[in-house]
């Protein structure tokens, strides 16, 4: 049984193929990281799950939530799902909160809609949730407006808001990226604590390898709209097989001494995707075949999959 199942998802946006044949699934209690750099299609993938793609996007493939296909639901049903069973948090937490409503009231409102609790009970729960998110003196902070909150605090409040409806799946789009580095670690640890040992599933979109390392059980590595590598986070991060993953992980530290490590060249622009492997131009292992044919994702029996003509598991 899976919470989320994405099968053969492709998205065309403004005439460009920004997501190509992406498949993955998330089981209850798992925390999946979608790791990618700019233009990798990771955000578009997340937006397709919550049905928030910009107008004019063409989608192919299937997305199922708890074995129910989203494509076959009415937009009303999908909207209900989005507010309840599927919740989402964003990078800019301050902007994601309503600026004119007290934080506590926003959380209580979501909680009441999902449980039908009394106003008083909902408020108590809101304060409780803020406390669980590590906000000091939650009873007082619940009366604050979003602009009183720092970025890190706002992200915690947004998490409380997202979890108020007891979702079975949380989708988090770069939730720590706007924060100071010293605050990022704390928020990552918080999210980890909220999910570890629970049946809630998490899909986190990130460009930051360390977030995946600290937080995720599974990872999907995307590049130029394509899945390059996928599998258990430990496997992928410690024994990366795809040349892109290897060199991406290698460039994180910038090289501890001497020559800085990086991947030469640039990711292809969305309007100029090559016919073959999108990484071919930057790859040190490139062969003729890579330029004409796209590699398919090939899994071993550990669930570790790699899309590469040259490296095989």
């Amino acid at each position: 049984m899976t919470v989320l199942d994405v099968a053969g998802l492709s998205v065309r946006l403004g005439g460009n193929d920004v997501v190509n044949d992406v498949s993955f699934s998330v089981a209850p209690g798992r925390r999946l990281g979608i790791l990618g750099e700019s233009g990798s299609g990771k955000t578009v993938t997340a937006l397709s799950i919550v049905d928030m793609l910009p107008d004019g996007a063409e989608t192919r493939g299937e997305i199922s939530f708890e074995n129910r296909q989203l494509n076959s639901m009415s937009s009303h049903e999908r909207r209900r799902l989005r507010g309840g069973s599927i919740a989402m948090v964003f990078q800019d937490a301050v902007a994601a909160l309503n600026p004119v409503i007290r934080i506590g009231d926003q959380i209580a409102d979501v909680y009441r809609r999902h449980t039908g609790a009394t106003k008083r009970a909902a408020h108590t729960r809101a304060v409780e949730l803020l406390g669980e998110m590590g906000i000091p003196v939650p009873a007082e902070r619940a009366r604050d407006y979003p602009h009183h909150f720092s970025g890190g605090m706002a992200q915690r409040a947004l998490l409380a808001l997202a979890l108020a409806g007891s979702p079975r799946l949380l989708i988090a789009d770069e939730p720590t990226s706007g924060l100071d580095t010293t605050v990022q670690a704390a928020v990552v640890d918080l999210i980890r604590g909220l999910f570890q040992g629970s049946q809630r599933a998490l899909v986190i979109i990130t460009h930051d390898v360390s977030v995946v390392e600290r937080l995720c059980t599974d990872v999907v590595v995307m590049y130029a709209g394509m899945v390059m590598e996928a599998g258990p986070a430990r496997e992928v991060l410690h024994q990366p097989a795809n040349p892109y993953t290897q060199r991406l992980l290698g460039s994180v530290e910038l090289g501890a001494s001497g020559k800085p490590a990086y991947i030469p060249g640039y990711a292809p622009q969305p309007w100029a995707l090559p016919q073959g492997c999108p990484f071919a131009d930057r790859c040190h292992l490139v062969e003729d075949r890579c330029r004409v044919e796209r590699p398919a994702l090939d899994f071993d029996d550990q669930g570790h999959g790699v899309a590469c003509h040259v490296v095989r598991l």
């Binding site: 750099e37 700019s38 460009h207 930051d208 390898v209 060199r247 991406l248 460039s251 994180v252 910038l254 090289g255 020559k259 800085p260 490590a261 990086y262 991947i263 030469p264 640039y266 990711a267």
Partner: peptide, 13 residues
């Protein structure tokens, strides 16, 4: 992007 930070560091050096 992580993968190109090193390029800029090297270029600056």
């Amino acid at each position: 992007d992580m993968s190109i930070r090193g390029q800029i560091v090297e270029l600056l050096a």
